[in-house]
Computed example of a mutant assay.
Amino acid sequence: MKLYTIGFTKKSASEFFTLLKNNNIRVLVDIRLNNVSQLAGYTKRKDLEYFLTELLSIRYIHDLNLAPTKQILDDYKKKVISWEQYEKSYIELLNERNIQDNLNEKYNKNFENVCLLCSESTPENCHRRLAAEYIKKLYSELDIEIVHL
């Protein structure tokens, strides 16, 4: 089973939507805390949902259970905490939220061709990688392969 992640920064709309199409993404899960910023361009919530549904028949979900808190995000951006501290805080947050029930309800253990969306251009220092790894560990029996687009 393949679980994908994608960041939209440094990708044109053409490149972004082509990656989703070519990888047969069926559900795009937006895990950004803020998905309506002017900086989001073609990935602003209402626009993105329209493009995905109308052009590619991809279901759109905004899942704040997988988003960091504003405090954690701000602390990292302002260099109050390191990436290692961010990772630890984010994983603790997912544990506190007990997200497995939410994931079971929304995805019914089917993460095949689901794609986690965030803004960072690469997954190394992005919570979408952490979320994907968390899901893979949580559902170890599913043999999930993580693919970063």
Rank of each mutant, 00 (worst) to 15 (best):
N35I: 03
Y50H: 10
K21M: 13
L20Y: 05
N23I: 11
F8M: 00
L19T: 09
L56E: 06
S37Q: 05
G41A: 13
T9W: 03
Q38T: 15
D47M: 12
E54A: 09
G41P: 10
E49S: 12
F17T: 03
Y42H: 12
S37K: 09
A40G: 08
T53K: 14
R32M: 03
K10S: 04
I31P: 00
E49T: 07
E54K: 11
N24Q: 12
L28Y: 12
F8I: 00
T43S: 12
A40Q: 08
S12A: 06
Y42K: 08
N24W: 06
F16N: 04
K11V: 07
I58C: 04
E49K: 12
T53H: 10
I61M: 04
R45Q: 12
Y42L: 07
E49D: 09
F51S: 10
K10G: 00
L52V: 02
L52F: 01
T53A: 14
Y50P: 02
A13E: 15
L55N: 14
G41W: 09
F17Y: 13
R26K: 13
R45A: 11
F16V: 06
L39H: 15
R59P: 06
Q38P: 13
V27S: 06
L39W: 15
I31H: 00
L20K: 05
K44I: 06
I61E: 08
K21W: 11
R26P: 03
D47R: 15
N23A: 14
R45T: 08
K10Y: 03
F51C: 03
L20D: 07
S57E: 14
T53V: 12
V36G: 10
T43N: 11
N34L: 09
S14F: 07
I25V: 14
K11L: 12
D47P: 09
D30W: 01
I58G: 04
I31S: 02
T18F: 02
R59T: 15
R26G: 10
K21G: 10
